[in-house]
Every structure is written in C-alpha cells, then in structure tokens.
Computed example of a mutant assay.
Amino acid sequence: MIPTRRPWLTTWGEVVASLAELDPADMVCFGSGPNSPDDPCMVVDTVELDEDEDVPPEAAGRGWTTVLITDQIEDVVDNLEQQIPNPDLATILRATAHYVDHDAFIELPEEAADDPQ
C-alpha cells in the first residue's frame, strides 16, 4: 500500500515495486545511484512544490538534488522491456542510474536481449 501523504521516505526497491500505483504527479528525489534496492529516496507530489523549488526542502535537507518524475522511470522500464522480457530489479536500477548519468536509455548487449531471464 502506497502512502497517500507526501513526502514519503522509501527505498528504490519499493518505488520500482509500486511504480504502477504512484501518481503521475509524483517525483522521486535522491542523491546518487540508484545502486541497490535499499538505496533511500523520497516520493514527493510535484503539486506541493513552490514555483521556485527544484526539489522539496525535505530532500534538499538530505543533500538530494536529483529528481525523476514517475513517467521517466516508467519510460526506463518500458525501454528495458523492449530489449529483454521481464527485466529484474538490478537491471532496472542500473538502467535508471544510466538514464540519470547520461540522459539516455541504456542499450543492453544483444546477448542480454537473447537471454531470457
């Protein structure tokens, strides 16, 4: 069950597992990564941000300045699913980190696409 009250402190594993339940107006704030399912992050409703805020004060106070909108994370997963069926959590997190670092979708080697998980 996804908390309705935002901001909501959570982990990347929980965000990915609950992606379908997140609101399109939600964004995920974090520091670096994500590198593991246990990496912390915060789910925030973008409607609650002031016009001049890039990240909410709760995230900024933790030093977290990286933000992805729910749609961006869903796009990363959709791109992976076009390359391999049912990508595992580690692959989703690696692809998300790649997206953050390179502003581009990850391209998996063809062997990964040929190897059903």
Rank of each mutant, 00 (worst) to 15 (best):
I2E: 14
P56F: 01
E21A: 14
V47E: 13
E74V: 10
S18T: 13
L108P: 15
E110H: 12
V15W: 11
S36G: 11
C41D: 03
D101T: 01
G13S: 13
V55I: 12
E21C: 11
V16T: 05
A25C: 12
I69S: 06
S18A: 15
D50V: 07
A20Q: 13
P85E: 12
V43K: 02
S18F: 02
P85N: 08
A112M: 15
L19R: 05
E58F: 04
E111A: 12
S18R: 13
L68S: 10
V77M: 07
F105K: 03
T11K: 01
D114T: 14
D26E: 10
T11M: 00
L108N: 10
I106R: 01
E107T: 11
H98D: 08
S36W: 11
Q82F: 04
V28R: 03
L68H: 13
A17G: 09
V55W: 02
D71E: 15
V44I: 09
V55K: 00
S36M: 07
R94F: 14
G13L: 07
P34E: 09
G13N: 04
D114W: 03
T46Q: 04
F30M: 09
D45E: 06
V77E: 10
D54I: 05
N79F: 12
T96P: 00
S32T: 13
T11Y: 01
D88N: 15
A95L: 08
T11G: 06
D39L: 06
Q72H: 07
L108E: 11
V55E: 04
P40L: 12
L68Y: 12
C29I: 08
D38E: 14
D103Y: 10
A25H: 03
D75S: 15
R5H: 12
D26V: 14
D114K: 10
A95P: 08
D45T: 02
I84Y: 03
A90H: 01
T4E: 14
P3T: 11
R6E: 02
P37G: 14
R94D: 10
H102T: 05
L93I: 06
F30Q: 06
V77C: 13
L9Y: 01
P24R: 11
C41V: 00
H102P: 06
T46I: 09
W64F: 06
D115A: 13
L49W: 04
A60L: 07
V47Y: 07
P57T: 02
D50I: 07
D52I: 07
